[in-house]
């Protein structure tokens, strides 16, 4: 099935790129690999009938936020990351604590697997508007965003204003009179 093939390709690219983001020593490569990971996830969004979000992800995330990251990486001329040294004396590295954490993690994985196995898997969409018609048109998205979610939308604008002021204040050099 070509559909499954596309899905597995995009998933594999997303997961591998994310793994390399974690494994990379040089933050510059990490940022570029993250762009690749976002591109793969945008492909999955298109497969999920969300083309607007896929484009927004590419333009806003990969295009704007990642460029911001790249600017900071280049601006700071970041030093190579120190090799990971295990501080044995750290209270969180105590053997009892680590074993407890391992048990919790295994428990969580088993629980997640159990939920995925036992739950009814959906191969087809359900719900009132599921029957054939494309619900993800930009028109529908905009209508819902500006009617049902208008308060959240307005709150978001205040959030962005606060973030902008905060970023300017934090990045300002100390002792500089404004």
């Amino acid at each position: 099935m070509p559909e499954m093939l596309v899905f597995y390709t995009f998933s594999a690219v997303a997961i591998l790129a994310s793994a390399f983001v974690i494994g990379q020593r040089n933050p510059m490569y990490s940022v570029l690999l993250l762009v690749l990971s976002f591109a793969a996830v945008a492909g999955l969004f298109i497969q999920l009938d969300a083309p607007f979000l896929a484009l927004a992800l590419m333009i806003v995330y990969a295009g704007a936020i990642m460029v911001l990251f790249l600017f900071v990486v280049m601006l700071l001329n970041a030093p190579q990351e120190d090799a990971l040294t295990w501080d044995r004396a750290h209270p969180l590295r105590h053997p009892v604590v680590t074993r407890f954490g391992t048990v919790l993690a295994v428990f969580l994985i088993v629980e997640l697997g159990y939920a995925l196995m036992r739950g009814n898997d959906l191969a087809q969409p359900i719900g009132s508007r599921a029957s054939g018609e494309v619900v993800s048109s930009v028109r529908e998205l905009g209508r819902v965003l500006f009617t049902d979610y208008i308060f959240a939308f307005e709150a978001t604008s205040i959030l962005i204003l606060v973030a902008m002021v905060g970023a300017v204040m934090l990045a300002r050099r100390e002792g500089e009179q404004s």
Binding site: I126, G127, L141, L145
Partner: peptide, 19 residues
């Protein structure tokens, strides 16, 4: 997508803004 409405996409929209 599987619930057949756009609310999931709206939330994603807000998550991207917050991110």
């Amino acid at each position: 997508r599987f619930a057949g409405d756009v609310d999931g996409q709206i939330i994603t929209f807000f998550v991207m803004t917050v991110a």
